[in-house]
């Protein structure tokens, strides 16, 4: 066991923790938008931490590039996917949670009476 092994194991454990949180959040949270939040973000952080941990266990230039590319793609595709799904859900009229306090998008749509 050297320092890198310990660091790698820790990163993977923390990453898996966030992925599990995302999975539980997907079931427990109140509406589509909060669930999307949980899945796209917590899962992104989790995957990137697991990738970092994998790099610590197998440090080489090759894995540096592979892990770097995978993390880069994850960071750039996850928010775009979340944005597209959130927008589609809103346009399809998916209901907001009853606790929701503001909907300034709805106010804006009513003001112009056009589609966003």
């Amino acid at each position: 066991m050297n320092v890198l092994d310990i660091l790698g194991g820790t990163l993977i454990t923390v990453g898996v923790f966030f992925i599990v949180m995302a999975a539980i959040g997907l079931v427990r949270l109140a509406d589509v938008y909060s669930r999307l939040s949980a899945v796209t973000k917590a899962a992104t952080l989790g995957v990137v931490l697991v990738l970092g941990g994998a790099f610590c266990l197998e440090p080489s230039w090759k894995s540096f590039f592979v892990v770097g590319l995978a993390a880069f793609l994850q960071f750039f595709t996850a928010p775009v996917g979340g944005f597209a799904l959130g927008r589609a859900a809103y346009r399809a009229g998916s209901p907001l949670a009853p606790q929701t306090q503001y909907d300034e998008l709805d106010d804006a749509i009513r003001a112009t009476s056009r589609e966003p």
Binding site: F17, F18, M21, I24, G25, R28, L29, A30, D31, Y33, S34, S37, A38, K41, A42, L45, L96, A97, Q99, T100, Q101, Y102, D103, E104, L105, D106, D107, A108
Partner: peptide, 25 residues
């Protein structure tokens, strides 16, 4: 990112939800 992730994780595992969602312009 880390602080917000922990906040969401805490809200997910504790039984009482502190959710106060909204859409803001």
């Amino acid at each position: 990112l880390l602080v917000a992730s922990l906040q969401v994780a805490w809200d997910v595992i504790t039984p009482r939800s502190r959710l106060s969602p909204g859409i803001v312009a």
